[in-house]
């Protein structure tokens, strides 16, 4: 598979009063052409900022990329001036957000908002823009697309709005779609609709997608490969079936066990002890050590390096450190 996006050694910092806190530390991963790549983790793990950095949408200041590169199509996106990055975003990279309600401007019609992106990037006229917006609305499964295109966002339900956001993200046929918790704000039956839609559109257009989520179920349903984040570290990458059948990192294993203990109702549920570390306040050593069942003496002293396994998987844990 050809590589579309390659992120190497990405570190992101947060400037607070006088000090600089590390939010993401030395993350590397690649997304292949036509691949759905999952980024999974809990609040404050750095999954969203990583994806926002790829899209050039970091809230800067206070957030900033400290080091690393983000290569897409032979260009380092981090080296692009803001004006060039704007034309990449929307044209080559489409974004889908968690809250469809706030992702749309309440003062413009649905059709105008879809057409706007088209007018900016594809330089088409307003009339043609609206026509293509209507066609796109049909593709994302909106009934009566012509009528809906003339409506304002507040008239639509959350599920419908998320379809509109998807339409906006896809109207310029980007090569990479970044979806930030696209179904978290939706009900289960609506989530099923949206995941189904996204799967279909991405696969049939041969696009790549980064799916950011906290929900392992969503990962299992949509992704080809997965990166697991914990405390600003990318702790493991692996093909999706391996994440579930043979997790390497103790955190991945714990996460899977703590949601998957469905059915074994007689005993206690599996739970990872302790609490999720707050972004930017990580101590020395491995960041999972305080909650890890397989902690060794070394974990408290040094942060483990990333080791690449023979099958291409990567893991950041001393259990595998010597094999690097």
């Amino acid at each position: 598979m050809n590589t579309l996006l390659s992120v190497q050694g990405l570190s992101i910092g947060l400037a607070t009063r006088g000090a600089k806190a590390s939010i993401v530390d030395d993350a590397s991963f690649e997304v292949g052409q036509g691949e759905v790549f999952g980024i999974v983790g809990e609040s404050g793990c750095g999954k969203s900022v990583t994806a926002y950095a790829v899209a050039g949408l970091l809230a800067s200041p206070p957030l900033s990329v400290e080091s690393g590169s983000i290569m897409m199509g032979g260009v380092d996106l981090l080296s692009l001036p803001p004006s060039r990055m704007r034309s990449v975003r929307g044209k080559d990279i489409g974004m889908i957000f968690q809250e469809p309600m706030t992702a749309l401007d309440p003062l413009y019609t649905i059709g105008e908002q879809i057409a706007e992106s088209l007018e900016f990037h594809a330089k088409v006229g307003k009339r043609e823009g609206i026509e293509r917006a209507v066609a796109m609305l049909g593709k994302v499964g909106i009934p009566e697309p012509r009528r809906i295109a003339a409506e304002y966002p507040h008239r639509l339900s959350g599920g419908m709005l998320q379809r509109v956001v998807i339409a906006i993200a896809m109207i310029n046929e980007p090569r990479l779609l970044i979806a930030d918790e696209p179904t978290t704000a939706l009900d289960v039956t609506i989530q099923a609709q949206i995941l189904d839609l996204m799967n279909g559109l991405v696969r049939s257009n041969g696009m790549s997608m980064i799916m950011i989520t906290h929900d392992l179920g969503v990962v299992a349903e949509t992704c080809d490969r997965v990166a697991v984040f914990y405390g600003g570290h990318l702790v493991e990458t692996a093909p999706v079936d391996r994440i579930f059948s043979d997790p390497l990192h103790p955190y991945t294993e714990g996460l899977r066990k703590s949601v998957a203990s469905i059915g074994d109702r007689d005993g206690k549920l599996y739970a990872i002890p302790g609490s999720v570390p707050k972004a930017g306040s990580f101590g020395p050593g491995c960041r999972f050590q305080g909650r890890c069942a397989r902690r060794m003496e070394r974990c408290g002293r040094e942060a483990p390096p990333v080791s690449i396994r023979p099958d291409g998987r990567s893991v950041r844990c001393w259990l595998y450190g010597e094999e690097a």
């Binding site: 809990e42 609040s43 906290h214 929900d215 392992l216 714990g254 996460l255 703590s258 949601v259 203990s261 549920l269 599996y270 739970a271 990872i272 002890p273 609490s275 999720v276 909650r291």
Partner: peptide
Amino acid sequence: DVSIQSQIL
């Protein structure tokens, strides 16, 4: 968070 849910349950 997912890893905390089981603790509370």
